[in-house]
């Protein structure tokens, strides 16, 4: 076994951290989409990721669909779950308060988790990597080809969302809802449809995150909650509601976790992200890129 230089090791931690961080960033973006339109923090956000991974395994491995078909089928199916969540659980709540919405999305989260355990059992599932598993050696670090897919999809999501919110009429309508739902409905925007769309969109992004990470870290039924908490940590770190913030927050959080686990104590891997989350909440709830004024105006 060749000895790995310390610098190479650090580089390895950074690469791994950024990869996992990309997933947190995607979850954080999903949080932000729903939060911006509805002021809801969807605690079931992590379940979209879990569903994305497991449904992809079903289509690609069990059914045997080629990647190019299995990928969109999975995204569509998880998007449908997102739409169902809004229609069956969020919209029927008659007197929505922050407390009831939190409890409702927690309920959804454990329901989906339970259903996933029912369907797939407790074993973790593997998915073949998109372009093989021959690692690339780069300055002493081992890089899986799948890492590039993860980064690639993060960039794709960022570009696509920027285009969507800046250049399309629906995207602008959603931004308008985020700004002021009452004013938006006055100019003829169907706010309920935008809420539905926000759930669909963030479910789709969650599904993509789940699909691209499964070949690296496998996927099992109970991963959702932790992904949701860390994704929220990323969103908070970057500033809740800010898309660039979500991506920066995710990458930083992933790196902290990776370095912490590698250099300090691997058993506390999950704790690092949570302690960062708590520290940000306690000392600077507006995050890195968040606007303090906006966070005051938002309804809590």
């Amino acid at each position: 076994m060749e000895t790995i230089s310390f610098a190479g090791q650090l580089f390895q931690y950074l690469i791994t951290g950024l990869t996992v961080g990309s997933i947190y960033a995607m979850v954080a973006v999903g949080f932000n989409i729903i939060y911006n339109v509805t002021d809801i923090i969807n605690f079931a956000q992590g379940e979209f990721v879990m569903l994305g991974g497991l449904i992809m395994v079903f289509f690609h491995v069990a059914v045997g669909l080629p990647l190019i078909l299995a990928f969109p089928s999975t995204v569509i199916l998880v998007t449908a779950v997102g739409i169902l969540i809004d229609r069956l659980a969020i919209r029927p709540i008659r007197r929505p308060s922050v407390l009831t919405l939190i409890i409702a999305t927690i309920a959804l989260s454990i329901l989906i988790k339970g259903a996933a355990m029912f369907i797939w059992g407790k074993d973790p599932y593997d998915l073949p990597a998109f372009s093989g598993r021959n690692p690339i050696n780069f300055i002493g670090a081992v890089i899986q080809p799948q890492y590039f897919w993860v980064f690639g999809f993060l960039v794709f999501i960022a570009v696509a969302l920027t285009f969507f919110f800046d250049r399309t009429i629906i995207g602008k309508a959603m931004s308008a809802c985020a700004d002021n739902p009452d004013a938006a409905s006055l100019v003829g925007i169907d706010v309920k449809r935008m809420v539905l769309l926000s759930f669909a969109l963030s479910a789709a992004i969650g599904a993509i995150a789940g699909i691209v990470i499964t070949p690296i870290s496998l996927m099992e039924y109970d991963r959702g909650a932790m992904l949701a908490v860390k994704g929220f940590g990323a969103a908070i770190l970057g500033g809740l509601g800010s898309f660039p913030g979500a991506i920066i927050g995710g990458l930083i959080l992933g790196s902290i976790e990776s370095f912490g686990a590698g250099l300090v104590h691997s058993g506390y891997k999950d704790a690092f992200a949570l302690i960062v989350l708590m520290a940000v909440l306690f000392f600077k709830p507006s995050g890195i890129l968040g606007d303090i004024e906006i966070s005051k105006i938002k309804r809590f």
């Binding site: 940590g233 999950d270 949570l274 708590m278 909440l281």
Partner: peptide, 28 residues
């Protein structure tokens, strides 16, 4: 003291994170 300054979702997440950290400590 710091987390009750938070409201709604922020408080929920802070207490949730706290609970998981303590759980990890019990394990480790």
């Amino acid at each position: 003291a710091p987390s009750l300054k938070l409201k709604g979702h922020y408080l929920a997440m802070a207490t949730l994170a706290f609970g998981i950290v303590i759980f990890i400590i019990f394990n480790e």
